[in-house]
């Protein structure tokens, strides 16, 4: 049982970090960023290139991933989403744009980084073993701790910084924020950059554990959407809760249902369908949007 809980918490920490970026972008711009998973993969490949190809320390790779993805996010918002949102009132326009960006990034990743699975050496060796009841490699513990630290840092930034407050105002009521003098374009761009940066950071963190490959983007996006559906779209606390709930469900399911084959996600999807039929706005979302 201890092992199941530890696995769930570890998975939850990384999932929550993935969902945070997605929910931030959604809350600020009402955009479902289908390319979020591809951004995560891109971040992983940037860290891989810096650490494995250039031989630089892991922290440099992580910072490079954050910077590259933040710049990428800012450019995507400024030159792609902003004009589309300005010209079209239809939600599907931004959804189609996001899907197009996802396909484009897949092609760019294949071109730049190739088709192979990539990974970087373990950043910490050794395994924590508590009498065979709980086994957890030290690098996973470190990555989980870093993920939690990043989540806490993100919450503090959103809570107490001027930029964070402006983005929260924007998320609560775009029109009112604009009337109060918040530069909507500027903070939308910062928000998108921040969301993309979080995706890049998770990719950079996890490349040391899970490695990275071209095909990870789509499934990562699907899981991120699951998390914000559970927690409530556009709500930061909801994304965190959704991440930990999904991580725990996955860990328990994979152990308890192992004898029945690969039915864990089937069970999760069924549970989610029932849950959403009762509470479509998720755990912490508001029914009015």
């Amino acid at each position: 049982m201890e092992q199941i809980l530890a696995n769930g918490l570890y998975l939850g920490a990384q999932y929550a970090l993935i969902a945070l970026g997605l929910t931030l972008i959604f809350s600020l711009m009402n955009v479902l960023n289908f390319a979020h998973g591809q951004m995560y993969v891109f971040g992983g490949f940037v860290t891989y290139t810096v650490v494995a190809q250039f031989g630089l320390p892991f922290i440099v790779g992580l910072i490079a991933s954050a910077v590259v993805l933040a710049v990428m996010g800012a450019l995507i918002e400024k030159f792609l989403f902003r004009p589309v949102i300005r010209k079209s009132k239809r939600d599907e326009s931004t959804m189609l744009l996001a899907a197009g960006i996802a396909f484009f990034l897949d092609a760019v990743i294949l071109l730049l980084f190739g088709e192979k699975q990539r990974g970087v050496p373990k950043i910490v060796n050794g395994v924590f073993n508590w009498d065979m009841r709980l086994i957890m490699p030290y690098d996973r513990i470190l990555i989980a701790a870093l993920a939690v630290a990043l989540i806490v840092g993100f919450i503090l930034f959103m809570q107490y910084s001027r930029t964070g407050r402006a983005m929260r105002a924007l998320a609560q009521d775009r029109m009112a924020a604009q009337l109060m003098g918040v530069d909507v374009d500027r903070y939308s761009m910062i928000g998108f950059a921040l969301g993309a940066m979080l995706a890049g950071l998770v990719g950079g963190l996890l490349v040391t554990i899970t490695g990275i490959n071209l095909g990870m983007g789509g499934p990562a996006s699907v899981k991120a959407f699951l998390m914000i559906m559970i927690g409530g779209a556009g709500v930061i606390s909801g994304a965190i809760a959704g991440g930990f709930i999904l991580g725990m469900m996955e860990s328990i399911g994979l152990t308890v249902l192992a004898a029945y084959g690969d039915v864990t996600y089937l069970a999760i999807f069924v549970t989610l369908m029932v849950f959403l039929s009762v509470r479509p706005q998720g755990l912490m979302g508001k029914p009015w949007g």
Binding site: I4, L11, I209, T255, A258, A259
Partner: peptide
Amino acid sequence: DTVTYQMDTTDFTPVLLP
């Protein structure tokens, strides 16, 4: 010979445990 995993699995620890 019954344990399977999704092709997009990134963390195999819980899958392999049993």
